[in-house]
Simulated assay, not measured.
Amino acid sequence: MVRARDRGSEHKYLAVRAYLSELVANELSVGDAVPSERSLTERFGVSRMTVRQAVDALVTEGILERAQGRGTFVAPPRADFEMRLTTFGEEARRRGLTPGADILETAVVPAPRTVAEALDRDVATPMHFVLRLRTADGTPMSLEETWVPVDLAPDLLSDGVPESIYGALRARGLDPTWGEETITAADATPQERETLQMQGSHAVMRTSRRTFGGDAPLMYSRASYRGDRYSVFVPLREARPTLVPRTRASAPAATTPAGRVPEGSPR
């Protein structure tokens, strides 16, 4: 049972949180500073801890962001993407954002075990590899790693990295028709924090996706998304049997090539 004193503290916390949310929605703009903890403490007659809890909750939700030594500010809105078999660029445009991509690396490399199993190939099978920094309206959003078997599309990267790898596969008669994606939460690595320009939150959302054309796996991808700039919209439906494609028996492990992004790192 919650004691009366605890309920009172909870109500004050909610009042501070509601006040700040109202300020952000109706009076402040992105980058504006919110009132200091001291002024909020005096305004609501609460402890600094209560104020900090309310601010922390809004930081976690991506509504506010802290800048060390400077204060707390209104954060840019998160990009809300729906889980569908589309590319980052397609989803960004659907949300009215301008997608961008910085190509960090491209190569033809032997498939590590995880990639080979996901794509139903032998370990060390040649793979097209692409590492990109994806942006929305110029803001870094994710590090994205993509693998496509060379035997499916030998000329895939002949003219550079296509704007849409899905589109390039379709142009070669390889239509992505369905996929499966796994999502986990993690702390960003130092490299991710630097590349994604993360300052406050260090949380990232890691995804791994297998894309299929009929029964054939076409592409394997991994990504790390900024937790403070990215949210996922997932439509729900009545439960149905889960589709779990079978992969080939594992072959002996191969050494990841020098300079390669290690297993489990962002795509």
Rank of each mutant, 00 (worst) to 15 (best):
P176Q: 11
R93T: 09
N26L: 12
G214L: 05
P112Y: 08
P154Y: 06
P241T: 11
A185S: 09
P112V: 09
R248G: 11
V2L: 15
G214H: 07
L143W: 01
L131E: 03
A54D: 00
A153H: 03
P241H: 15
R66I: 02
L243K: 15
P76E: 12
G213I: 08
T242Q: 12
E117Q: 11
S9C: 07
H128Q: 12
Y13P: 02
G96K: 09
G96T: 10
L157Q: 00
G160S: 03
V204R: 01
A54H: 01
R43A: 12
M1F: 09
D187I: 08
I103M: 12
V232K: 07
R52D: 03
L243Q: 14
G167K: 11
Y225Q: 03
A15P: 07
V130A: 06
E37G: 07
R113Q: 14
G179C: 13
R38H: 14
R5F: 08
L133S: 05
P257W: 10
V46E: 02
G259K: 11
P162H: 07
R3G: 09
T184A: 13
P176G: 04
R132V: 07
L196R: 03
P252H: 03
M219H: 02
S221A: 15
Y19V: 00
M205N: 02
T86V: 04
P99K: 01
A101V: 04
Q197C: 11
W147M: 10
R246H: 13
R260G: 12
V261R: 13
G167I: 05
R229A: 14
A171H: 14
V204H: 02
Q199G: 03
S158M: 09
R121C: 06
G200M: 10
T189K: 06
G69D: 05
V55D: 06
P162N: 07
L196W: 05
P176T: 08
L133N: 03
G62T: 05
Q191W: 12
G264K: 04
E163R: 15
I63G: 00
L133P: 00
G213V: 07
P162G: 06
R3W: 06
D32Q: 06
G96P: 09
G213C: 12
R210M: 10
R38Y: 09
T182I: 14
R17F: 00
R134Q: 12
F212T: 00
Q191P: 02
D159L: 01
